[in-house]
Amino acid sequence: MDAFGGAEVRAWIDRFIANVLDRTGELTELDRRAGDGDYGTNLRSALGRARVNLEGAEDPAAVFTAVSEAFLNTGGTSGPLFGMWFREFAKAFTEPVNGTNLATAAGNAAAVVQRLGKAEVGHKTMVDAMVPAAQALRAAAERNAGPDQALHEAAAAARTGAESTEQLLARRGRASYVGEHARGVMDPGALTVAMFFAAANG
């Protein structure tokens, strides 16, 4: 497939929501060991609101706007950051979604989260999966890879990035308060980002 239309984007988001809702227990457990344990609850309420907002959302920008608004109406700090992250996808996507606007969206989105969250790669946050995924999408776009292939590579990069957080000592975010206790625990925000890109290809 050379381009994603509204239906494909909607299916991607629906798979993402379903996969995350299936694993909120696991995400909460990670946050309990490395944060304050409210991550799964906040995520579940954001995704519940997203499902309501998604009623009737058909084009790619509308789908991502629905998800963004739901996250912006979520407590904690990861909720609003995800809201601003998804918002950049809504802003960059025109139908159909191709490799170029995927790369633009993910690049802008990672930059917004880094700026607002004041986090760099290696701080054991969601940024550790967002930045490598954006880089993979940029590299794929430069060799004119289709969106399927680009998102496949982004998913692998995000997964590797998320796994790298296991051994990191947190510098930002909730896990920074518990120091060494969080070493060995994957950052649940980074894992969520990996799940987002993994959901793209069914």
């Binding site: 912006l72 109406n73 407590g75």
Partner: peptide
């Protein structure tokens, strides 16, 4: 916001 939690950006 909720008790001792920031209101949302929304």
């Amino acid at each position: 916001g909720a008790v001792f939690a920031s209101p949302t950006a929304y």
